[in-house]
């Protein structure tokens, strides 16, 4: 297998909990991401799936260095970039860009879309003004927009088109990796398909690698070569896309799969469903033992004390559970 393009080991990211009346001192850290390993190979798509509060967005921000990580290392093409600053960080950011969830909020409404897309080039000081404009127009064309829309404002575009603009902005630097944070969850179903297909086309044509953050296993099924399922800051299961869908071993993955509404009324009426009770606990005070045990349908007594580790087998499928589903 080829050398990984992006490799993260033991990533831990926390938020401070402060105490004190005048001088706020940090008394603890809430671990939003608690020791996550992740490997992305060139041309591959890795999906990180989980519900709100599982730490997936914090992890994404850590990976692109929008947030500092407390512990762990991030290697990009064999080079440790965990603590890079200044020029080194800037070079990394040209190679690894990001697409955001909300295409409306992530575009400045007072900026023409050409300027929005061109901004990364301006920031990194790439090319002459003429070059930049040409590259912007190429990027717009590549995402299926009319380059003549250069001078329009975001409000003139539909949700799907705005997400295309967001993708053009991520593409214009000609990156190797794009981190997509919930790229389609704010879009209508028929438009979701357009964006998923566009991402696939771009990957094929440009050899891009993606990390896709999503809350919905269905959406990433098309895109992902590998899937990691997160719960409360940890990876609870990982594996090849189809492995996770068809042979889920961790009860949480099982519950996620089972919770999806199925677009077939006959199946929907008859199937056995695992409905999890309660809400995701607060990461300030995570449960003892296995973090999933209070909501787990198959938890045993030992789960309250033993914290299972993620063990990945030779086939690349791994889970962190003492009593996996069969």
């Amino acid at each position: 297998m080829s050398e990984p393009i992006l490799k993260a080991t033991g990533i831990t990211i926390g938020f401070p909990v402060t105490r004190g009346i005048i001088l706020q001192r940090e008394v603890a850290r809430v671990q939003a991401v608690a020791g996550v390993d992740l490997t992305l190979h060139a041309g591959e798509t890795l999906a990180v799936v989980g519900e709100s509060g599982c730490g997936k967005t914090t992890l994404a921000r850590g990976l692109v260095r929008l947030r500092d990580v407390d512990a762990g290392t991030i290697e990009f093409m064999g080079e440790d970039i965990t603590r890079k600053r200044g020029r080194g960080l800037s070079a990394f950011r040209r190679q690894v860009t990001m697409i955001f969830q909300d295409p409306i909020a992530s575009l400045d409404p007072r900026m023409r879309i050409g300027q929005s897309v061109q901004e990364p080039l301006d920031i990194h000081g790439i090319g002459t003004p003429g070059d930049r404009k040409r590259r912007v127009q190429e990027a717009l064309e590549r995402v299926g927009l009319n380059p003549e829309h250069y001078n329009r404002f975001p409000h003139a575009f539909s949700g799907g088109q705005r997400q295309r603009i967001g993708i053009a902005r991520a593409l214009v630097l000609e990156p190797r990796v794009i981190v997509c944070d919930e790229p389609v969850s704010a879009l209508d179903v028929s438009v979701q398909a357009q964006i998923v297909n566009l991402l696939e086309d771009l990957q094929r044509d440009l050899g891009l690698s993606y990390i896709v953050i999503a809350h919905d296993l269905d959406v990433v099924r098309r895109l992902a070569d590998r899937v990691q399922v997160m719960y409360l800051g940890r990876v609870v299961e990982e594996g090849g896309g189809e492995q996770v869908y068809t042979q889920a071993r961790h009860p949480y993955t099982g519950a996620l799969l089972s919770a999806r509404p199925i677009a077939d009324p006959k199946v929907a009426r008859t199937r056995q469903r695992i409905v999890l009770q309660g809400d995701v606990p607060s990461p300030i005070n995570p449960p003892s033992g296995c973090r999933f045990h209070p909501r787990c349908p198959v938890a045993q007594a030992s789960c309250t004390t033993d914290d299972p580790r993620l063990v990945v087998g030779a086939d690349g499928h791994g889970w962190a559970c003492a009593y996996p589903l069969s």
């Binding site: 398909a193 998923v196 297909n197 696939e200």
Partner: peptide
């Protein structure tokens, strides 16, 4: 057809 759960692996998502 654009429902992601219905598409099969290796098949392109249908788009309107």
């Amino acid at each position: 057809a654009s429902l992601p759960g219905r598409s099969r692996t290796g098949q392109r998502l249908h788009q309107i």
